[in-house]
Design a protein around this nucleic acid. Structure first.
Lengths: 243, 243
DNA sequence: GGCATCGAGATTGTGCACAAAATAGGATCG
DNA sequence: CGATCCTATTTTGTGCACAATCTCGATGCC
């Protein structure tokens, strides 16, 4: 038995109208990102199918995709759950973000200054949106815009692969924040973002990299990542693989 | 209609005996990595199903997983193909690798020296394997071991998230190499790896980071990434999304 | 001879039905 | 009263059949 193989190179076609399931991925992804679906939430296939007026198989495919992104956890014969990072995992994700985002800021710093007008305009537009959300006290919008800001910088840096990797890390750090943020202090990151934009816009200013590292540290410090053991482990799951 | 939501936190259970399809993913992944399935190869569902004695749906799921890793490209209504990176994409992947692997080498450099005996032993074992493959002229083994080496260093660095990201990038750079390597010169990277191991093993030596950057540059330089336009674009695909 | 059109065959996409497993509730027994 | 076992119901997993789409060769026309 041989696999039929053709070495002709097919070109990619971006959307074959499979947009319907991309819509669901986005929809669920956003719901998780802005905490409407907190970590640990069970995502029953049938319920989701009805919500989105779509067949269960479609939902199943979407969940598989989200599981691949580590946004949901698939447990065999038990279903899909919004991922709940461990403290260890959360620390790793933030370290990974520092690695990627330092590189991105380095690339931005290496760009000819001043930055193109279109870029500056986009940054200022974002600043306005964040300020508006802040004034309106729109928490969901703030969370969404905060993630978008980092992605925006990644796009300006011009490496789509790095941007894609960062997108995944941002999703996961959002999960970590949802799982571990302290009740108290929520120093809004909009102020940090403002300062970053200022540093990028000023051709004389080369503190952007340092500001970003500080910003990421600040966000991580707001988390309560003390490694206290889980309260109540599920004994059945623990011994599931034994007799 | 409301989504049933339970905020109880389920624990992860690693394998629910879904190992059968992980096997197929690994099998196809390896076949792609060592060039038995070159970029552009069509992966027909039915053929694969027969090869692995499994139902077509299973294969379909596996292909979806591999597509998510950017190892295969899924074209609607046309099927799955081994991914063929563009020169631009290839450059991005190598840049991303430099970013991640510089961070990994920095972490290794920050480790207390000398490295733990177990670590050194594992590195030396790997060195032997690469040398054996080199002497035997076993090209497949050399490719596989070469990738494993970088992953090994990532594991020693101790950030599983970064390791996972790097694993994906290594797969994709393997694809890029398969697509763009020059017919001529193939300076084997085993020598570079040897030097890296020496640098890591010697507590006085702090050149490992630089060696790694040089090594990655050398690998990329072996590629022919001149941006000549594709010979023959598929017009139907280009205009697929229009009326 | 070249090019467009059409149709047969093959390949991918999708919903459905049934099987397997887990969860929840209740009954029984110690 | 509490624990355990058993059963009913819900939920997930999988194969199958059919529909939609594409490929490619043949045919006919210019």
């Amino acid at each position: 038995m041989k696999i039929a193989l053709t070495t002709a190179a097919p070109r990619r076609s971006p959307r074959g109208r499979g947009g319907a399931e991309a819509r669901i991925v986005r929809s669920i992804g956003e719901a998780i990102a802005d905490r409407r679906l907190p970590p640990g939430t069970k995502l029953a296939e049938e319920s989701l199918a009805q919500v989105f007026s779509v067949s269960r198989e479609r939902v199943r495919k979407v969940l598989l995709l989200l599981a691949q992104r580590q946004v949901v956890t698939l447990i065999p014969n038990r279903g899909a759950f919004v991922a709940k990072p461990t403290p260890h995992e959360a620390r790793e994700v933030f370290e990974a973000r520092r690695v990627i985002e330092r590189a991105i800021m380095d690339k931005l710093a290496a760009l000819p200054r001043p930055l193109p007008p279109a870029t500056l305009a986009r940054l200022n537009e974002h600043r306005s949106q964040e300020e508006a959300a802040e004034r309106a006290g729109d928490r969901k919008a703030m969370i969404r815009l905060s993630g978008q800001f980092h992605l925006l910088l990644a796009e300006f840096a011009g490496n789509g692969t790095l941007t894609g990797i960062l997108a995944g890390l941002i999703d996961r750090s959002g999960l970590a924040i949802a799982a571990f943020e302290r009740r108290s202090s929520h120093t809004c990151s909009a102020e940090d973002h403002r300062r970053l934009i200022d540093a990028l816009a000023d051709p004389q200013d080369d503190t952007a990299v340092a500001l970003m590292m500080e910003h990421l540290d600040a966000v991580e410090r707001q988390l309560d990542l003390d490694a206290r053991p889980e309260p109540m482990v599920d004994l059945k799951s623990v011994f599931a693989s034994e007799e």
